[in-house]
Each structure stands twice: as C-alpha cells, then as structure tokens.
C-alpha cells in the first residue's frame, strides 16, 4: 500500500526533480500540442459565440483546408499563391455555408443547426476524398518557409531539444490569437460580432446584417482551421484521420467555456501540458495510452463541478 502511495505522490516528483531537463522537455511538448488544441478550440468558440452553433465540421475544416493547400501545390501552384488561393477557398466555403445552410435555417432550434453541421462534415469528407483522394499527404512545410531544424539547450549539463517547427507553431498561433483578440475588441466589425453574439434582434435594429457577420465568423473560423491544418500537418501529415484531433477540442471547450476565447487558450494549454505530464510520470502505473483519455476525464470532472468552464458565462436558466 505504501509503495502504491509513494508511486503516485512521491516518485513522479522525485523524477521531475532529478531530471529537470527532461521535465522541461515534457512541459514544452505539452505546451506545443496545447497551443494547437487551443487553435482548434478557438475555431469552435468563434462560431459558437456569434451564432450559438456547435460547429461539428470544425475538425474536417482543418483537414479540408490542409488538403486544399497541398492539393493546389501539387498542381504546380507556387506555395504562397496556393496559400492565398486556399484562403479564398475558405471564404467561398463560409459564403456558401451562410447562403445554403444558415440562411435557410434561421430561427430553427440549435439542435437542427448542429445536425446541419454534421451533414456539412459528411459533405466535406466525401467532397474532400473525391477531389483530393483519401491517401495521406505531407504538408509543404519547407515551401512555406517554416523552419524544420532543431535547437538544443543544455541547462546545467542537461539536454532539451526544441524543434523549430514547434517554435514556429507556437509563435504563429500566438500571433493569430493576438490579432483575433485585437480584431474583436478594437474594430467596428469586431464590435458587430460581439453584438450579434449577444442579441440578434438588437443587432438588426442598429443596422448590423446578421448574414454578413455569419460569413465573417465562418471565414475567421476557416482561417483558424487553415493555420491549425498547416501546423498539425507539418508535425504529422495531412490525412482525414486528423479530424479526430478535433474531438480533443471538446474537453478543451468544456474546460475553458464554450464562449470564451481566453478560455480556449488556457483550456488548450492545461489539457496539452496536463496529458503529457500524466502520460510520462503517472502513465506507467496504469499502462500506457493515458494521453488518449486523460483530457476526457478532466472534462468529466469539470462537467460535474463547474459546467460553465473556467471562463464561460454562468448558466442561469429562469424557471
């Protein structure tokens, strides 16, 4: 019994203390995947805030944007032109979704809109496989001038390796998040987005077009998806199985709150770092594969004790 308690509460911390360089490495790895979780969660939050829709298609949008980029490049289009064209495609997608789906489902219950996004997911999977084929592709990392080397840091004789691609992912994600935050708080369109998130009728009455705002939100979510697609794609590959990582965004959202941009970021980091630490230091106790379920257990605990998440709006239902 004592041995068990020691291996839970003692040994992992002793290991952390004895090998601080390895501990830093684990934290860093967790931090990078956390930032990428946050990116995916951010896509969900944008759409959920503006229209109250839980966009099931966010994961496939990540894959779709990545495939479009790689596919265009494979046709001989230069990398940065392909990037621009992909952005145009994501705008077209946002525009099409608003025209064909959202506009026709105005005032329908949330569950109907949720179902519509599941339909959208299937269309994007089917369409994506039809256009790009279903085989795994590698991201055009070097063509997009994303660094691929690694740097070594040796604190006090230890060894920590930073992949440049991870550093790039962290920096780009941070830039994207900061510019989105500024866009939301400082611009006219940002103010309109927040207004629509609060009250549709009132927004209309001050002259805000809901349709226009929805296109902008889905476009912003598409851009976030594209960045997530590039970064995840660069770390692994671009394939349809990537959309599974979108499921990881769910616990992030439960943790951070569905309506909070800072929540998505903090939630992503907690899940990313938490699951890595748990996998490495406590995982051996339970057999491996802890990374697969750790996030969901955390989410479950949160649902029990703080269902609105860390930063979400408190859920008050009048009866």
């Amino acid at each position: 019994m004592d041995g068990l308690i020691y291996s839970i509460l003692g040994d992992p911390f002793v290991q952390m203390w004895q090998m601080p360089d390895f501990f830093i490495q684990v934290i860093w790895e967790g931090f990078v995947s956390g930032i990428l979780y946050a990116l995916i969660a951010l896509g969900f939050v944008l759409i959920f805030k503006a229209s109250g829709i839980f966009n099931f298609a966010q994961g496939i949008m990540v894959v779709f944007s990545g495939l479009t980029l790689v596919g265009l490049h494979a046709l001989g289009v230069p990398a940065f032109v392909a990037l621009l064209m992909t952005i145009v495609v994501m705008y077209g997608l946002a525009f099409g979704i608003e025209r064909l789906v959202l506009r026709n489902l105005v005032n329908q219950p949330d569950i109907i809109l949720f179902m519509a996004t599941i339909g959208l997911t299937n269309i994007l999977i089917g369409g994506g496989q039809w256009i790009f084929g279903s085989e795994t592709k590698s991201m055009i990392t070097t063509e997009l001038l994303i660094p691929t080397g690694s740097s070594v840091w040796e604190p006090g004789g230890g060894l920590v390796i930073f992949q440049h691609i991870d550093i790039a992912a962290a920096v780009i994600a941070a830039l994207l998040i900061v510019s989105l935050a500024l866009f939301f708080s400082k611009t006219k369109v940002g103010r309109a987005l927040r207004a629509v998130a609060d009250d549709h009728q009132a927004s209309l009455s001050v002259g805000i077009s809901l349709n226009q705002i929805w296109v902008i939100t889905w476009f912003a979510a598409g851009i976030v998806a594209l960045v997530a697609g590039i970064m995840w794609g660069a770390r692994s590959d671009v394939s349809f199985s990537l959309q599974i990582i979108a499921l990881k965004a769910l616990p992030v959202l439960v943790l951070g709150g569905f309506t909070s941009v800072p929540g998505a970021i903090v939630g992503g980091l907690i899940i990313g770092v938490g699951e890595k630490l748990f996998e490495i230091y406590w995982g051996p106790l339970l057999g491996s594969g802890v990374e697969g379920w750790f996030a969901y257990v955390i989410a479950l605990v949160f649902l029990l004790f703080r269902p609105q998440g860390l930063f979400g709006e408190k859920i008050i239902e009048r009866v």
Partner: peptide, 9 residues
C-alpha cells in the same frame, strides 16, 4: 424593444 434587447455582455 418591449422586453429590452441590449448587448448584455
């Protein structure tokens, strides 16, 4: 509006 439609946030 009759039932107040403000941007509560």
């Amino acid at each position: 509006f009759q039932n107040i439609a403000l941007f509560k946030g």
